[in-house]
Structure formats: structure tokens, C-alpha cells
Nucleic acid binder design. Structure first.
Ligand SMILES: Nc1ncnc2c1ncn2[C@@H]1O[C@H](COP(=O)(O)OP(=O)(O)OP(=O)(O)O)[C@@H](O)[C@H]1O
Length: 736
DNA sequence: ACTGGACAGCTTTTT
DNA sequence: GCTGTCCAGT
């Protein structure tokens, strides 16, 4: 479709305008009718002005948003004047991918990403008016906890035998206060009441931390948002300029935004009101970091001229999958209006499988994945989801053994592992010799230099030749190492060989220290080599450091590699549920659906957190198109010696004809021992091994019994291999 | 005064 | 596995 033409009158000086315009007289909704239902089309073609799309999972919210982009572009809005925002990086890239796949080339110019990356761009350009230097350094979470740690020790809080919050906890407390826009004292009282007697010290740490950052031109993740809000709030000229540049603001997953982000949206839309936000209150899973659904509910108050559009039909999941989702939500403490329905056919009932132990869970899932794959489903159409990243460790090993290629998302902080931080700290010093935090890190690596000496050296550096360490006061045994460090840094200062090469050389330098410090140094060294590869994309140190801080690699396995194998085969996805937001797969497995892990022990006695866990499993459930399976090992211990056995309360009460109870057993623990699956028969007959298997109130009907029997047969014949391919309607990646 | 080893405690999810 | 605290050794 070539519905675009070149505008000879466009301003060639404008870097955001390539002069591409929709053909006059073209229908901006061309082709939309068979891709959108009535309500969706209504939202897509809503006139200018604010709109709130609120709808359940899989009803096409993102689809609406990306079609809206196409619609606006076709109507003549410059793609660069459209700003697409969301909270998570994964959702942001999915949204941008779908948007650019949908229409012709110009959509590549649509601006967008996470709130944080947008704020960063904004502040690099305009931060100066707030006193933020344009070369401010972004602190990642480990940096800021390091600084908080220093301040914490510096203030000498806590003292002997006293229980003072650890630095990570201090960091959470501070961040919680900021993201919720409330006083530190209130947040402590509400969420950490057991530390209430330390409130004053916490306040002092907070202030010390804040001043520390201001003095040195540092910004943590929260600061990016805070500064951006201040900028747009206080600097009318900047706000006007930004308002003119971005004529349309579109926000996905709006239920996951916090107060500051909500304010940002409001400020961005202040001059033109062209704001469309989409969200689902039942999918709000970031309240733990201050997200508030009040942003959704207050949207009509914020923009009194706003339209509210709701979507009801799911186009993702089959009705049996949605039945489970509805069951989960129906038990929520505060009801949701939602009742999802679907017209997608499917008679596969989702299953809840009690596995004998973790190994059985792992092996059964691997078996089933291979089975699905043999039936013709690409591995990329399958996902295994979990509450916490470490839940997948055992499965990762097994997949490796069976040579099933996979990519894992979430919970992995490559850039925050000690050895990577060590290397990056050297780069930071080169970029900003005043970076005292990095100096301390770099210097304490050396033998005989501890925190005190490092601080002393770092604070007495010569401005003109910061890398000259010959006069640094330290123990004798440190002298050699200091010279080595000094030589290296000076050499880089004279001729910087580019980020990738610099890292190679740093690894050479660091190798002896690494070997000394870690038993697993070969593995760590290989990971450092990978950092050098990642750095290859960057020409300047600054862009590298920004990227490492704001968009660090979040895939644990095969970081940065494409989702395809060398032979073009897609890979199985392992993901935390948080990172699976907005995505979908034909077959979804949710593992460790057990009390203590999902919900987590921490959440069990806090109602708010428990409800968030419930929404989380709702999100997991609604990722599935066709096949949905919950599994849990029915007897295991966690690291702290707690016994995990009961199925998650979120699924244990669901009637058996909505969620079928099965049992997986194995004759042995060996890797090659077969795993058998059998329907869990009526409780009275089995005695239930003494556990609550959640089917006390099973409503067994003749129908559900026979369904179980027929499934049993089907499974058997699958194993025997005499059943043809199931009809998997797997669409090739199709531009939405 | 400082470093670094031994030991005990906590361990979710994201930017 | 990583962080914080305590303490012996330099
Ligand atoms: N009118 C439609 N016709 C065909 N397919 C549709 C239609 N609307 C949505 N879909 C498909 O349904 C699936 C879910 O859509 P989408 O991801 O936009 O939903 P969503 O509401 O954003 O979901 P979530 O709440 O999980 O983020 C996608 O595969 C999408 O292409």
C-alpha cells in the first residue's frame, strides 16, 4: 500500500520531518474494517482530544494503539509528532515493533519507549535549566544502593547489635516514598512499621543521598522521572516546545504508571489534550513500586473532555482459558467488573498438574514442549512463565541437557553482577574523573586498599591529571598495582581506542584480580568478553554508559542474541510474568503455582500484596492463546527450610470442569525416567496424600468425567504417536 | 588506623 | 550468593 507521497514543501531543516505525507483523499481507515471490531475502530478513529480505553486482557488495546498511530499518520500527522510511552521496556519494544510493522516506513520515526528513556532524552537536552549538567551520570540500582551504603555507614546509624535496615532496604524505602509521592515517614509507618523507630535516621540517609547526587550531577531512575516532571512543570517554555513537538501522546499499560508518570502524561498533554491512554485495572502488577490505578480512574477528572471507550471481546484466548481467568478474578477481594468472553474455538481445558517433585515438573514440561513442537508448533509459540526468576533454574538446566533452545527474560541483572560493575566502573572514571563512587570501587579492588584509603585517594586527586596516582598515600604493597592502574588510565586518556577495545584491554588488566577473587573466574571472564561485544554497538563512551544504565540487557540466556536460531528456528521463551506483560503465546506453562512461591510467603499476610499476586496470575493466565497449564511440585522445601506443598490459593478453588486437576508422577528421579500423567481422581477415592489439593469442592459432572477420560486417551495416543497433528493455527508474525 | 577473613542472615517483581 | 558485622592481625 502506498498511501504516502513526498511533500515538496516540507522543511528540510527539520530533522523530525522527512516530508512524507499521506496521499490526499486517501481513506485513513482503509483496511481497518476487517482488522478491528466496532468498538476498536471507534477508539482508533476517535477525534482529537483525550481518550481512555479501558479493557480486559487480549481485547486489543495495544492493537488499537498501533492502529491509532497508523490512522494519525495517514491523516497527515508527522510520525515524529507522535509519542508512544509505557513503563516496561519489553512492552515498549513490543508496542513499537507492532506500530512500525503496521504501516509504511514513516512510522519508524515515531518517538517512543519507556518513560525513563524519554525522560533521559528530555533531560540531556533541557536539564541544564534545573541545574542538571548535560553530562549527568545515570545511576543504576546497584550504584544507588552503593551510595546509600556509604552514607549509611558514614552516618554510623544502627550501631551494635541493632537491627537497622540494610542498604537495599533503605533504597526501597526511599524509592517507595518518591514513587508514591508521600513522606518518607508515612511510607515507613505503612510498609515497614518495624523500622518506625529508625525513621529519623532513614530521613537523614535520604537527605544525604539526595545531596550527594545533586553535588555530583548524578541521577537515579527515580530522579529521571522527577527531574522530567519538574522540568515540564516549572519551565513553561520547555513545556510549550515539547507540546508542539509531540502533538499526540499515546500510553500503553497505563495501569502500571505511578503518580510521577501520571503527572508527566498530564503535562505532556496540557497544551493539546491529545492523549490516549489504554489500560486494564485487573492487570495492575506494579503497585509494589508505586503504580496506582488512580491514574486510570482520575483520567476523566484530569481531562474533563475525555472519552471513555471499553472493549469486551478477547481475540487472544479461547473461552476455556478465559473461564479460568474469570474464575481467578471473581475471587478478588474487590471485584472487577470484567467478564471476558471470546469467540475463539477451543475445547482444551486448562490443567492444574500436581507434580511429584520439582524434577517431575521440569521433565514433564520439557516432554510436553517437545511434543508440541513435534506437532508443528514453533518453539517461539511456547512460553514458560514464573513468579520469580530463580524458579526456572532447574528447567534451564534440563532444557540445556535436551538442547532445546530458549531465551529467558526478567529478573536477571547482568550489569549489576560484581565483575561487570568492576569493569564498568573503570569506564565511568574515564568518562567522568570526578565519579567518586567508581573510584572507590576501582581502588578497593587493589590489594591493601580498603574503603578508607580509597576515599582518601579519590578525594585528593589532581584536577589536571586525575589519573596520576604516583603520589597517592597507601600501603607499600599497593604501590605496584596503583602504578599499573595509573598507566592504563593515562594511556586511555591519551588515545582512547573506542569502547569495545577499551574493555578488551580492561579485561587484560582485570584478569589477575578476577582470578584472585572468584572461583568461577573462567565463566565470569567469558561474560566480560560479552560486555565488550555489547559495547561494539557504541561509538562513544557516553552513549555506552547511558545505554548500560537505562537499557541494560535483560535476557539472561544469550544476551542480546536474536530470538532465532542459526537455522531460523524460533526459541522457547522463559519469562517472569512481569516481563511477559502484553505478550502472548499459543501454549503457556506457569510453574511453581504453589503457596509460598505464588503467592510468595511475603505476600501471604498482606492483603494488598496478595491481591497484586492475584492480578499477576491473571496476567499469566491471559497470555495463553490455546493451551494453558499450571504446574506445581507437591512437596519441596525452599532455601529457608519452609515446606511448599499446597497448590496456590488462586487456582485451588477453581472447579474441576474449568481447571482440570492432574497428577504427574515418575518411577524415579533419574533424568531418563518416564513421567506419567494421570487425571486426579475424585478426592474420596485417593485420600489426597493428606494435602489440600483444592478439589474438595470439585463439582464432578458426568461431562467433566468423560472429558477427562477422552483427554487421557488423547494423551496416551500422543505418547504412542498415532494421533495426527493437532490443528495449530499459528500465524506467521503478522503485522498485527 | 585500616584491611580482610570468618560468620550469620536474607533472598520478588522493574526502571 | 551476596551483604553486613565482628574481630584478629598488620
Ligand atoms: N479485531 C481483531 N481481529 C483480530 N484479531 C484481533 C482483533 N483485536 C485484537 N486482536 C488480536 O488479539 C490479540 C490481543 O491483542 P492485544 O495484544 O492488542 O490486546 P491487549 O488488550 O493489548 O492485551 P493485554 O491486555 O494483554 O496487553 C492480538 O494477537 C491481536 O492481534
Amino acid at each position: 500500500m502506498s498511501s504516502f507521497e513526498f511533500d515538496p514543501k516540507h522543511d528540510p531543516e527539520n530533522p523530525f520531518d522527512f516530508g512524507v505525507r499521506p496521499k490526499q483523499g486517501g481513506d485513513p481507515t482503509e483496511g481497518f474494517a476487517d482488522r478491528l471490531n466496532e468498538a476498536q475502530l471507534d477508539a482508533v478513529t476517535a477525534g482529537d482530544g483525550p481518550a481512555l480505553v479501558i479493557a480486559g486482557a487480549g481485547t486489543g488495546k495495544t492493537r488499537v494503539l498501533v492502529h491509532r498511530v497508523a490512522y494519525l499518520v495517514r491523516r497527515g500527522v508527522a510520525p515524529s509528532a507522535i509519542l508512544l510511552l509505557t513503563f516496561t521496556r519489553r512492552a515498549a519494544s513490543e508496542m513499537l515493533r507492532r506500530a512500525s510493522a503496521l504501516v509504511d516506513r514513516p512510522v519508524d520515526e515515531v518517538s517512543g519507549g519507556t518513560f525513563h528513556s524519554f525522560a533521559n532524552t528530555l533531560l540531556r537536552r533541557h536539564g541544564k535549566v534545573l541545574g542538571l549538567p548535560p553530562n549527568f551520570t545515570i545511576l543504576d540500582s546497584a550504584d544507588s544502593s552503593d551510595i546509600i551504603g556509604h552514607i549509611r555507614t558514614g552516618l554510623g546509624v544502627g550501631g551494635r547489635g541493632q537491627r537497622f535496615p540494610q542498604r537495599r532496604t533503605c533504597q526501597s524505602i526511599i524509592s517507595a516514598a518518591i514513587n508514591r509521592n508521600v513522606e518518607l515517614a508515612d511510607v515507613v509507618l505503612e510498609r515497614w512499621p518495624h523500622f518506625a523507630h529508625h525513621t529519623e535516621d532513614l530521613q537523614r540517609i535520604y537527605e544525604g543521598y539526595r545531596d550527594f547526587k545533586v553535588e555530583r550531577g548524578l541521577a537515579d531512575y527515580d530522579d529521571l522521572l522527577l527531574y522530567a516532571r519538574d522540568l515540564l512543570d516549572r519551565e513553561v517554555a520547555v513545556r510549550d516546545e515539547i507540546g508542539r513537538r509531540y502533538e499526540h501522546i499515546l500510553v500503553d499499560e497505563y495501569q502500571d504508571t505511578n503518580r510521577i508518570q501520571g503527572d508527566l502524561v498530564s503535562l505532556l498533554g496540557q497544551s493539546h489534550h491529545n492523549v490516549m491512554v489504554v489500560g486494564d485495572d485487573a492487570q495492575s502488577i506494579y503497585r509494589f513500586r508505586g503504580a496506582t490505578i488512580d491514574n486510570i480512574f482520575d483520567f476523566p477528572k484530569l481531562f474533563s473532555d475525555s472519552r471513555r471507550i471499553t472493549l469486551e471481546q478477547s481475540y487472544r484466548s479461547t473461552q476455556p482459558v478465559l473461564d479460568v481467568a474469570n474464575e481467578i478474578l471473581s475471587r478478588a477481594e474487590h471485584g472487577y467488573e470484567k467478564h471476558l468472553f471470546s469467540s475463539i474455538e477451543g475445547d482444551e481445558r486448562p490443567r492444574l498438574i500436581a507434580c511429584e517433585n520439582e524434577s517431575v515438573q521440569t521433565r514433564w514440561i520439557a516432554d510436553r514442549i517437545l511434543e508440541l513442537h513435534e506437532e508443528g508448533l514453533p518453539l517461539g509459540g511456547i512460553a514458560v512463565l514464573f513468579r520469580s526468576s530463580f524458579h526456572a533454574f532447574d528447567l534451564e538446566l534440563e532444557l540445556g541437557r535436551r538442547e532445546i533452545p530458549f531465551v529467558k527474560y526478567g529478573g536477571f541483572k547482568f550489569m549489576e553482577t560484581a565483575h561487570v560493575k568492576d569493569i564498568v566502573a573503570h569506564l565511568r572514571i574515564l568518562d567522568n574523573p570526578k565519579d567518586a563512587v567508581s573510584w572507590t570501587r576501582v581502588l578497593t579492588l587493589l590489594p591493601g586498599i580498603g574503603e578508607v584509603t580509597a576515599h582518601r585517594i579519590a578525594s585528593s586527586l589532581d584536577e589536571k591529571s586525575p589519573f596520576d596516582l604516583s603520589r597517592a598515600k597507601a600501603q607499600k604493597r599497593a604501590k605496584n598495582a596503583l602504578t599499573r592502574l595509573s598507566d592504563l588510565l593515562n594511556r586511555f586518556r591519551d588515545t582512547f581506542p573506542g569502547p569495545a577495545r577499551a574493555i578488551e584491554e580492561l579485561i587484560e588488566y582485570y584478569e589477575p584480580l578476577l582470578t584472585e577473587k572468584y572461583d568461577d573466574h573462567p565463566k565470569r571472564r567469558a561474560e566480560l568478553e560479552h560486555v565488550a561485544v555489547l559495547a561494539g554497538k557504541h561509538k562513544s563512551l557516553r552513549s555506552l554508559l547511558d545505554d548500560f544504565a537505562i537499557e541494560p540487557p535483560n535476557r539472561a540466556t544469550d544476551k542480546g542474541a536474536p530470538a532465532l536460531d542459526s537455522d531460523g528456528e524460533s526459541k522457547l521463551i522463559l519469562s517472569t510474568i512481569h516481563s511477559a506483560k502484553g505478550l502472548e503465546w499459543d501454549a503457556v506453562f506457569v510453574i511453581w503455582v504453589v503457596e509460598g512461591r505464588f503467592p510468595t510467603f511475603q505476600a501471604i499476610d498482606r492483603e494488598e500484596e496478595l491481591e497484586e499476586e492475584r492480578r499477576l496470575i491473571y496476567v499469566a493466565t491471559t497470555r495463553a492463546r490455546q493451551e494453558l497449564t499450571f504446574t506445581y511440585p507437591s512437596g519441596s522445601w525452599d532455601k529457608m527450610g519452609r515446606y511448599l506443598s499446597a497448590p496456590s490459593r488462586f487456582v485451588s478453588q477453581i472447579p474441576a470442569d474449568v481447571l482440570e486437576p492432574w497428577r504427574a508422577t515418575s518411577t524415579g528421579l533419574g533424568l531418563n525416567d518416564e513421567v506419567d500423567l494421570s487425571p486426579m481422581i475424585i478426592p474420596e477415592a485417593t485420600g489426597l496424600l493428606g494435602h489440600d489439593h483444592g478439589i474438595d469442592d470439585v463439582e464432578w459432572t458426568e461431562e467433566s468425567r468423560s472429558r477427562l477420560r477422552s483427554r487421557r486417551k488423547k494423551i496416551d495416543s500422543r505418547i504412542l504417536g498415532d494421533l495426527g497433528n493437532d490443528d495449530w493455527t499459528y500465524e506467521e508474525e503478522w503485522p498485527d
